[in-house]
Design a protein around this nucleic acid. Structure first.
Lengths: 177, 177
DNA sequence: ACGATACAGAACACTTTGTTCGTTTTTATT
DNA sequence: AATAAAAACGAACAAAGTGTTCTGTATCGT
């Protein structure tokens, strides 16, 4: 791939993210993005058909590496899920992509949708741990939703607690352990 | 208040809600709203300064009567909270304002924010029921968030379950009872 | 050094926004 | 029923944003 393409693509995404931390998604204009990225108008539209697709691309970039399956030392342990959750939190805190800024922005709901979609995959593996007192889909929905909320709470608190502590709280509150 | 004002205000809100069920909030234009409401352009702007304030007004209308404190037969009983939650669900299902359509729309995240804000008030009263194993704010956040998610799940399922059943599931899943 | 291609920048037709203002209709009151 | 006040209409407006097309220039991979 051409270096120029990569450079401008990154510049656009960076400018977009900077704007997202300042104002709401639907108040951001293409003009502001290309001004921030210092990129021509036509160039923007060759890279991204619409602003919505730009958002998709940003979410892809941000969440992909967090949910990559990397070597996991918790496999087989009885706190395997808790370990994985802590791992996700750890990634968010130390991520170069500065996820926390985006998740705390006025457009956070937008990103929560993507976040939950990824989380669902994680919890699907461990659904059996939580019994069968309620419908499977209800439970899955509950776990992903409430973990995402917990993460947001943690970010709002300034991430003073350790990832392990938050994961522990979450497991406790959902009745496991 | 002038009848005309009430009439046009209602017409605008109705048109807005009809549009929200079809397309996303930030894709809706003022032009579409006033066409749907059959109202002059200047009239719209005398009623609502911006589209965001129109949204605020809509949320106010929709959620207000649900969280009104009306005669509550569960006071003092040990399933008082469960009763109140069922009551809320009952309201949503039978509401004339057709909340379900809005909460299932592409802009549902927007309304969830308002919904949660109101729910927080409900849970604040009963926070003591859930122990002190985790920080109060964490817990409050968890309860409001996950109940809102449960409601959304219920709506998506077509409200086949009874309000009492959903409230029961929720209490079970949060560890109470 | 070469052709290919990505970019800049300007111009464009078009849509949307929010405001203004004179006119017409409806309302509450007498 | 007559009247003054209030509200809605509708046209026109500048300003801003959208998405496309074009030409010339700079940069890339080979």
């Amino acid at each position: 791939m051409d270096r120029r393409q990569i450079k401008t693509r990154k510049a656009i995404l960076r400018a977009f993210r900077a704007l997202l931390e300042k104002k709401r998604y639907d108040h951001i204009t293409v003009q502001e993005i290309i001004d921030g990225a210092d990129v021509g108008r036509s160039t923007f539209y060759t890279h991204f058909e619409t602003k919505d697709l730009l958002l998709d691309a940003l979410c892809g970039d941000m969440f992909h590496h967090i949910f990559e399956d990397d070597p996991c030392p918790w496999v087989g342990r009885d706190d395997e899920l808790e370990g994985k959750l802590a791992h996700i939190l750890w990634h968010i805190r130390d991520s170069r992509s500065d996820l926390s800024g985006i998740l705390l922005s006025d457009s956070s709901e937008l990103f929560m949708t993507y976040f939950k979609a990824h989380l669902r995959g994680v919890f699907e593996e461990y659904i059996a741990l939580f019994g069968e007192a309620v419908p499977r889909d209800f439970l899955l929905n509950h776990l992903t939703g409430s973990f995402a909320e917990a993460v947001l709470w943690w970010l709002r608190e300034g991430m003073t607690l350790s990832p392990e502590a938050v994961a522990g709280y979450f497991m406790k509150i959902t009745g496991k352990r």
